[in-house]
């Protein structure tokens, strides 16, 4: 019975092909540094899950953002755990993604034929930093407020177009409810969408081209 169900699904989904292509593929012998990519993916998924949970109670408005975070931390059961994991997951993810990039650089894995994998990786690194930057404001506490004030001030120093960029980032000339809601939107919709699509491309390339091998002295 189970066998027939599997066959029925396999015929339509191509499970065997997926198994052969993804799981059963041969890859060069590599070391532990090569786990950083999957570790980044794992952290991204965890961030996604804890992030979705946080939106259950979080309110992206200056009136309530701080209070709703306090509520999550102090009154919701295990709210402190979910937020704690999201908070530390963000820090860890930046670290892991960065080291992943350094490893790729060290083993020259960005060279032929993996140039596109590298470029999509750079997009992912920047998007991760963007997630960190936009997420930082959301608790609407002193640290968040002032870090974002300074952070959005930085592009304002560019001659001519700088002030315009700052007001686009902030949704106005100073930090306000508009800043908070656009950061929130970017944090939970725009950047995750970019990251998801780019991870898809990244993984497709990794599977298609194979994991790079560790170069020996003749390479």
């Amino acid at each position: 019975m189970l066998r027939r169900l599997f066959q029925w699904l396999d015929e339509r989904l191509g499970l065997t092909t997926i198994h052969d292509v993804v799981l059963d593929r041969k890859v060069p012998k590599v070391n532990w540094w090569f786990t950083l990519g999957s570790a980044s993916l794992f952290l991204f998924l965890l961030q996604g899950i804890t992030g979705v949970f946080l939106t259950v109670y979080y309110v992206p408005s200056p009136d309530h953002a701080y209070d709703s975070v306090q509520y999550i931390m102090n009154e919701v059961r295990f709210g402190w755990l979910i937020r704690g994991m999201h908070h530390w997951g963000a820090n860890l993810m930046v670290l892991v993604v960065f080291i992943h990039m350094l490893r790729t650089f060290f083993y020259a894995a960005y060279k032929y034929p993996r140039e596109l994998t590298w470029i999509s990786g750079v997009v992912l690194l920047l998007a991760t930093l963007g997630m960190g930057f936009t997420g930082y404001l959301l608790p609407w506490n002193q640290r968040a407020y002032w870090a974002t004030t300074v952070g959005t001030e930085i592009p304002g120093t560019i001659p001519i177009i700088g002030p315009f960029i700052t007001s686009v980032l902030r949704g106005g000339s100073e930090l306000s409810a508009l800043t908070l809601s656009r950061f929130y939107s970017v944090h939970i919709w725009f950047l995750p969408a970019v990251i998801t699509v780019t991870i898809g491309l990244h993984l497709y390339l990794v599977i298609r081209l194979g994991i790079s091998h560790i170069p020996d002295e003749n390479d």
Binding site: L23, T35, S38, A39
Partner: peptide, 23 residues
């Protein structure tokens, strides 16, 4: 290098699994 290498499953996956768990 690939021929001399290993199968993604289980040789690579088990490392990924352990690192993910550690994290």
């Amino acid at each position: 290098a690939k021929q001399k290498g290993v199968k993604f499953f289980p040789d690579i996956i088990y490392k990924d699994l352990l690192v993910a768990f550690g994290l």
